[in-house]
């Protein structure tokens, strides 16, 4: 067999094989979640769990359809935890399509768990991406910054958002994001007002967050969909067939497939090198 050919496999074959590899766990939909739970996920859970009941969690949505597969499971599991523990929360989206997507996640959970909009949670709608200024301004005067909710209903008419006056009423910021908004929250809100932050980046952004976890500036992290599946274990859904768990197993297959491809490519590369030397 000519090993040299191994470094030049037609890319369409690679694509079709990739599709076959990842589709199998999606058909099976295993309920088993990852055994390991990383410290940052556990810390995120503890921080949310320990938030005082008289405070409100602020969920910042920066994601849209582009990263829905990673950020929606994170949003869903965190909102579920907040609902289960009867922690109140408000949601704000900085992404246009993400506004409706996050509202739909909250609405679906609200119906499933028998919660009440305006009392247990509230969606503040959309704001253009001025995270720095808006977060600082809402820390000073929340009501001035957010007069109406997603449905253009005045906040004063709903018990939950009406009681938020300033940063003093916010117990935690949960930043679910595919971009570098964590630093902005740290600089303009969490740092000045001493509010803990849990960050939920896409896996691409996660490696950069470790210095901030180490320094204690960030309380916890959900690293992409794997972080979401670990968090599901913590809230007692470790044996439930969820999107995050199925994705975790599909990812496993995809990673092993890619590693095999890298190895095959290198075998071909080495074989070609030896032939050239001869």
């Amino acid at each position: 067999m000519n090993l040299k050919k191994l470094q030049n496999i037609d890319k369409r074959i690679l694509y079709i094989l990739l599709a076959i590899v990842i589709v199998t766990p999606l058909f099976v939909r295993p309920s088993k979640h990852p055994d390991a739970v990383f410290d940052e996920v556990q810390n995120a859970f503890n921080t949310i769990d320990n938030m005082p009941d008289d405070k409100v969690a602020f969920v910042s949505i920066v994601w849209g359809p582009g990263t829905i597969a990673e950020n929606r499971p994170q949003t869903e599991v965190l909102m579920r935890h907040l609902f289960m523990k009867h922690k109140k929360f408000v949601v704000l989206s900085w992404d246009m399509p993400g506004t409706k997507l996050s509202y739909d996640v909250g609405k679906a959970l609200e119906e499933e768990l028998g919660m009440e909009y305006g009392k247990d949670w509230c969606h503040l709608g959309y704001r253009p991406a001025y995270v720095a200024m808006i977060s600082r301004a809402m820390g000073e005067d929340f009501q001035k910054q957010f007069a109406e909710d997603y449905n253009n209903k005045p906040l004063k008419e709903m018990p939950l958002p009406a009681k938020i006056k300033s940063a003093k009423d916010i117990g935690i910021v949960i930043d679910i994001t595919p971009s570098a908004t964590m630093g902005t929250w740290l600089a303009y809100f969490c740092g000045p007002y001493n509010v803990p932050i849990v960050t939920c980046p896409t896996a691409v952004m996660s490696a950069e967050a470790y210095p901030y976890l180490d320094s204690g500036q960030v309380s916890g992290m959900l690293n992409g969909v794997i972080g979401a599946s670990m968090y599901e274990t913590l809230i007692g859904r470790g044996n439930t067939r969820t999107e995050a768990a199925a994705t975790a197993w599909s990812l496993s297959c995809a990673h092993i497939y890619i590693i095999l491809l890298i190895v095959l490519g290198n075998i071909g590369y080495i074989a070609a090198g030896k032939k050239a030397k001869r």
């Binding site: 990739l18 599709a19 990842i22 589709v23 999606l26 058909f27 939909r29 582009g66 990263t67 829905i68 597969a69 990673e70 896409t202 896996a203 691409v204 952004m205 996660s206 490696a207 950069e208 690293n223 992409g224 969909v225 794997i226 999107e243 199925a246 994705t247 599909s250 990812l251 995809a254 990673h255 890619i258």
Partner: peptide, 27 residues
């Protein structure tokens, strides 16, 4: 080492997006 960690995490992130679409088609 840092770039290797970023690459590993990037592969994971990008694969998740693709899996998300297939999850829709399959389930």
């Amino acid at each position: 080492i840092g770039f290797g960690a970023i690459f590993g995490a990037t592969v994971m992130g990008r694969m998740t997006l693709f899996i998300g679409r297939f999850n829709f088609l399959v389930n």
